[in-house]
Each structure stands twice: as C-alpha cells, then as structure tokens.
Design a protein around this nucleic acid. Structure first.
Lengths: 180, 180
DNA sequence: ATGGTATGTTGTCATCGACAACATAACGGC
DNA sequence: GCCGTTATGTTGTCGATGACAACATACCAT
C-alpha cells in the first residue's frame, strides 16, 4: 500500500467524472464509476462530495467558469456565437448546467458561478437603452438556439455554425434603433 | 382472481407516470413505481414499454401534442407567450421533452410529434420574408426564455408572465443577410 | 374444445446511492 | 521523539432499481 491516501482525490474525481460525462452522458455518471477511475474504493468520494448531486453541482459550476472564459473578450453578436459554440463543443456539460438536473437553489457555489457568467453577459449590453431587457432577450435567443441545435430540431439547416450566425443576425432589439 | 389482466395497463402506466413526473421529477420516475401505482407487478410494464426510456419517450411525445394544442389558434407574439406559459405550467414535462434525457434519434413517434409542433410554429411566420429563419429565431427566443425562467436565472424580474411578454416584445426580426 | 398468442407474475442478478463501522495517514503540541 | 486529534480511505451492508428468464393465465380464431 504505497499510498493509502490518494493525495488529490477531489481533483481526480472531477477529472474522471468530466470524462464520463462527455462520453456517456449524465445518467451514466455514477460516484462508483468515478471512484473506480481514480483507483479508489466505492465509498471514498463521499469524503469530498456529500452525495452524487454535489459532484454534479461541482461539474456544473466548473462549466459556468469555462463558459465565462469562452465569452470573455467578445461582445454582442460574437459573444452569442461563442455561447452557441461552447454548447455544441460540450453538449453534455451544457445539459448538466441547464438541464435542471441540479437544483440551483441548493448549491451556493453553483449559483455564484452562474451569476458571474450572467454579469459578463449583461455587461456586453450596457450601451443599449435597456441593458437588462436586451441581455435577457439575447441570452434567451442564444440559449434556446443552443438547446434546439443540440436536440436536433434544426437538422434541415446545413452548416450549423453558419445557421447559428444567421439566426443571431436576424434579430434586432426594439427599444433602441441599433442592432447588436 | 377477478382480473388477471389489467385491461388498459398502457394508459394507466402513462397516467401514473405523468403524475410522478410532475410531482417528483424525471429521475424519480421508475418503471417499478409506475407499476405499483397501476396495482400491477414490477415487471408488467415491460410488456408495453421495452425499457424505461420508451416510457419517457411516450410521455415526451404526449407533451409535444399538448404543446401543439396550447399553441394552436394563436400567432406571432401570442403564440410565443403560450409557449412560455406551457413550459411554466408543466415544468417537468417540458424538461423531459427538451432536456436531452430521451434521444430523439431513437424514437420515431417522438420525432414525428416534435416535427408536427415545429410545423405549427413555422406556419405562424409564413407572412414574413424568410419564414424558416424568423421561425427559428422566434422558437429559439421563447425556448431559451422558458428554460432560463425555469432555472431561476431571471429571479430579479418581478411578474414572470409580464417579464416574458416584455422580452418577447423587445425583439424584431430582420431579413438582412449575414456572412461570417 | 383446442391451440396459439397476448398479457401478467415470480424469481433473480448486477449496479447504484447511501450509510455505519473500522483502519490508516497526517499534523501539531509537548 | 511521543501521542492524541482530525482528515481521509476501506469494508460491509441495505433498499431500490433496470433488466431478463421462466412460468401462469386470459383471450381469440378456427
């Protein structure tokens, strides 16, 4: 028994879980499987996550940080396209973040990460007459677009990224005369 | 025993499952629980649904029909508001339909029901220059709005229905061509 | 009535989340 | 150095679940 203690089990669990998540989807993600991948007993993860939901919440929070990084530096239309690109690149992570599997209300860290991302988005619309409303509309648009693309509801459209850009470009916000 | 056969087990299972769905959420929905509610053995449902996913698919397809009925008769903004109202009224059903739990690709009946609803929506935009694109943008908007409202990302907004109407009203559809 | 088919039942297995009891490592005061 | 406290992993177990096999009963056409 060279190392009875793992050293950094929490990080190892998150790494393994992220891999399971993207390759086999949310329902296949079990604490026991994550433990196996870390070469550790089936019950060890409970020292780091009180229950399965806590692990999912940590993965989701990590996802919001990644999304925030993907959006940072862009503004307006480009930010929207970055949003959709992120969703298409990490479909399962995106579903975990927004699929309702993890109740936001119960996980403060997750709420915080989501709120930070929200602020980044609202900030990009600060030059419009009603930033909150415009940001809400823009977010709704790219968020719904991402979901519908992931679900395959727009299969008739050819190139996905190009289609997304067209949809985003087809929308104007009424309270001001300027397009994004 | 009076009735060895149930008579209409499939319908009874769907009814019970729908109740479990809205009261306890998707993960709590088990074939065994549905069987219990129908007063039938734990294995009987397999005669009607090859596996758990098939039951979920049937519930989702039913959901698309309900959504189609809710949208029918309206057009434009009103249809969008009806969409959001449906999502808020049946949150778990909505998540089941769009949460990615059920892979559309594997269930033809589900695909058909979704496509029918899609047609209803596109039809409402036939008077605009580019109906397909406008419909896609409109659908994305109300779909994303529904999801974000359900996830509690717009808690700062007061009255929910009024907020939804404002967001929908803040958007215009342009026919401008777009190149990346 | 008779035989085939559709429908339910009983029994069983592997996996999972969760918990309790126990074992070992790491750290700090002395 | 020594020892006790705390953090971290392990073993063992329970109830619930999805899935399947083997069996039993009702229904229907001939």
């Amino acid at each position: 028994m060279s190392t009875y203690h793992h050293g950094d089990l929490r990080a190892a669990l998150l790494r393994g879980a992220a891999k399971i998540l993207e390759t086999q989807g949310i329902p296949a993600l079990s604490l026991r499987d994550a433990a196996r991948r870390a070469g550790v007993s089936h019950s060890a993860p409970y020292r780091h996550f009180p229950d399965r939901e806590a692990l999912l919440a940590a993965l989701a929070a990590e996802g919001f940080e990644l999304l925030g990084e993907a959006m940072r530096g862009h503004s307006g239309r480009e930010m929207g396209e970055a949003y959709v690109r992120f969703a298409l690149a990490h479909p399962q992570r995106f579903r975990l973040m927004f699929g309702g599997t993890v109740p936001m209300a119960k996980h403060a860290a997750l709420r915080g990460a989501a709120a930070a991302t929200h602020r980044t988005l609202v900030g990009a619309f600060s030059d419009l007459p009603r930033p909150q409303l415009a940001a809400a509309a823009a977010w709704s648009l790219v968020h719904g677009l991402s979901h519908l693309l992931l679900d395959g509801h727009f299969e008739s459209a050819g190139n996905v990224e190009q289609f997304a850009a067209q949809v985003i470009g087809a929308v104007r916000f009424a309270s001001g005369q300027r397009a994004t």
